[in-house]
């Protein structure tokens, strides 16, 4: 009889795995479809069949279609997908490492640091790629500062890191406010404000080529060690007893997440709510096991920011900052999620 139960449970496990693989397949298909549709969306709209033909490098396509697709839309769409994936996977990883469902990719101060770096570069009148570089570097500086401060507490607990992150975030936010005050209100100030609200308006193919390898490498790294996040989330001592070097794996996850988030924020500005909400959507679909959760979360994040960015560039003739849209969509959706999943946190 016992063997029967085991066999039955394993059967259930297998059907769970099939459900997961099906979800993965469907999501990849949806991503591909939305990718093609998005290439056609915009002021100059292109039908789907033409888009596909252009992508397949077929000869009888007008130059203008090729230009719109390859020079304007493709970099932006790839950036949107990568950044959505990056923010989601780093948010989900942080939630596991910090054993806290309310943290996001920005908890250690990467966004505030990046905001400060960008504001400095803008005030100094540097060009766009320097703004990105400053944002990237100061994002990493902020996280390093959080690490350093948490060390002062002589405790290696995840909570002290989160507290240090809040301290550093507030500090850099204050500096950003200071810079806004002294910035030239006609030119520099609007630029800073728009940067802080996030946009993919100015993304170029060059930006994508520079940052995509970093983001992809980080995402792959996190995916490779994803099962271990389960164990870290069970608690420090428990993970140690299971042979996991908690400090080391936490360090690896934080470094990977920080570098990819800083790279993402560098080219997009600050886009909130994705790193917090999307992992919860993933949990609703496939449960909390990081083995399944992380791939699903990554894909949903890519889809989400792609759709949001499509809205940002097509709803009005101007551009709506992404940070505003993700918050407008994210907040009510998060409230709905908490109600729907009857979360007991």
């Amino acid at each position: 009889m016992g063997v029967d139960v085991v066999a039955k449970q394993l059967e259930a496990l297998k059907s769970g795995n099939i459900a997961y693989h099906n979800a993965l397949l469907v999501l990849v298909a949806v991503t591909l479809f939305l990718f093609l549709v998005s290439l056609g969306l915009g002021r100059y709209s292109i039908p789907l069949d033409k888009t596909v033909k252009a992508l397949l490098m077929q000869p009888n396509i007008e130059q203008v279609v090729k230009d719109v697709i390859f020079k304007i839309r493709l970099p932006r769409i790839i950036a949107a997908m990568l950044i959505g994936a990056t923010l989601s996977i780093s948010g989900a990883s942080f939630q596991g490492v910090f054993k806290n469902p309310l943290v996001s990719s920005y908890i250690l101060g990467v966004a505030s640091g990046a905001g400060f770096g960008a504001a400095v570069a803008i005030i100094l009148g540097l060009n766009m790629s320097m703004v990105q570089l400053f944002a990237f570097l100061f994002g990493i500086v902020a996280v390093a500062a959080s690490f350093g401060i948490s060390k002062l507490y002589r405790s290696s607990s995840a909570l002290s890191l989160v507290l240090a992150g809040i301290i550093v975030s507030s500090f850099f936010s204050a500096l950003v406010s200071l810079l806004k005050c002294i910035a030239d209100p006609r030119q520099k100030l609007p630029e800073i404000v728009f940067w802080l609200m996030g946009s993919l308006n100015t993304v170029t193919a060059e930006d994508v080529l520079k940052t995509a390898p970093v983001m992809i490498a980080g995402i792959v790294g996190l995916l490779l060690i994803r099962w271990r996040i389960n164990i870290v989330s069970m608690g420090e001592e428990e993970a140690q007893a299971l042979g996991v070097d908690v400090k080391k794996i936490r360090g690896i996850i934080i470094v990977l997440s920080t570098v990819i988030t800083a790279a993402a924020v560098g080219i997009s500005g600050i886009i909130g709510w994705i790193g917090l909400v999307i992992p919860h959507v993933g949990r609703m679909l496939v449960g909390p096991d990081y083995k399944k959760l992380l791939p699903i979360t990554t894909i949903i994040g890519a889809i989400y920011l792609l759709v949001v960015d499509d809205c940002a560039r097509t709803i009005t003739t101007g551009e709506i900052p992404l940070g505003i849209l993700t918050a407008l969509v994210g907040t009510p959706f998060f409230a709905y999620l908490l109600w729907k999943s009857k979360v007991s946190w």
């Binding site: 469902p101 271990r228 069970m234 449960g287 909390p288």
Partner: peptide
Amino acid sequence: ALFPFSVLEVAVMGRA
């Protein structure tokens, strides 16, 4: 635990 892992998922963590 924080996350609602299934009992089997918890038990299999022993393989770490």
